[in-house]
Design a protein around this nucleic acid. Structure first.
Lengths: 157, 157
DNA sequence: GAACAGTTGACAGGTTCCTGTCGAATTGAC
DNA sequence: GTCAATTCGACAGGAACCTGTCAACTGTTC
């Protein structure tokens, strides 16, 4: 067995770990945001427009999701009063998503819970581990993006 | 800012990376398995029962998913002829999922494509990087599992 | 200013995962 | 052997993501 195949095995193992960790993170996110009446997906959208109002398409690009996925989440957030569409001076049709008072209050609440949770978990892991994991996962992501995009954009055809 | 909060920030960054990497991996998996008439989800089920026939519930536990999610995938695989239910000597009602000839052929095809792909990507990343990422992500997953399970099983209530 | 490509939101439909509930089968305690 | 707890598949419904298509708007090019 060449060392090349050994790296491939590590890559495959990493995939399985990422799948499982992803599931757990969504679960944890839902638990953190539920008290504020949110879910992982909705919380993330609120987090993006906390920096300033943005269109649905812009939020989707920031999050790396399809435009239509964010559209659904955004409409649901509007229905629940966490977010409102405000006029966009640069575009007549593409309104801006903006936090309402209720949305800001919910976001602050989740952020407080998230900070406590992240501090707790971050502190309980060996110091270098997280940094190393972050570096490796980022490298894998960048490599994968490069591998995936050339032969067609895949998303947003 | 204490070093504790710094670790928490690394943890938060890792979360975002994992979300994005997860999405890319699913995309890559679909692309690898599409030529064989499969998807990521279906390929993974076939991979589990390749070691030997198993019930839907057993496959779900192995994959860390809800039983009903695998049930749907399994039924779809049966419809497409990749898998068949065979009698279970130990359980009258819980039949065993077993690969058909077509299923085995499709699985081998995807595995070949996967091996080539993993070799290519694994070789193009710095050797230590993957190992470090794997170690860190695994530690985070284990820690998160411990954090999540105590206060209720969440899945399969 | 008219035609053009690119972007955007609306609408429709599909996949994969989830939860909750039910009856049937199995297992274990007594 | 009997009975309760557990496990299993079936069924129903929902959440979050995806793709594809369309018309309206923007900015550019001529």
């Amino acid at each position: 067995m060449s060392s090349l195949q050994k790296e491939a095995a590590a890559f495959t193992d990493l995939i399985l770990e990422v799948f499982q960790l992803n599931g757990l993170l969504l679960q944890a996110g839902d638990r953190l945001s539920a008290p504020a009446g949110l879910t992982s997906a909705r919380w993330q959208v609120l987090g993006v427009i906390d920096h300033g109002p943005a269109t649905v398409a812009a939020v989707a690009r920031t999050m790396g999701l399809a435009r239509q996925s964010v559209q659904q989440t955004a409409d649901a957030l509007v229905d629940d009063g966490f977010v409102a569409y405000v006029d966009n001076p640069h575009h007549q049709r593409a309104k801006l998503l903006s936090l309402t008072t209720a949305g800001r209050r919910a976001l602050r609440k989740v952020e407080a819970a998230h900070a406590a949770w992240a501090n707790r978990l971050g502190a309980s892991l060996a110091p270098g581990l997280l940094a190393a994991a972050l570096e490796g996962v980022r490298a894998a992501r960048l490599r994968l993006e490069k591998d995936l995009t050339p032969e067609e954009g895949a998303r947003e055809t």
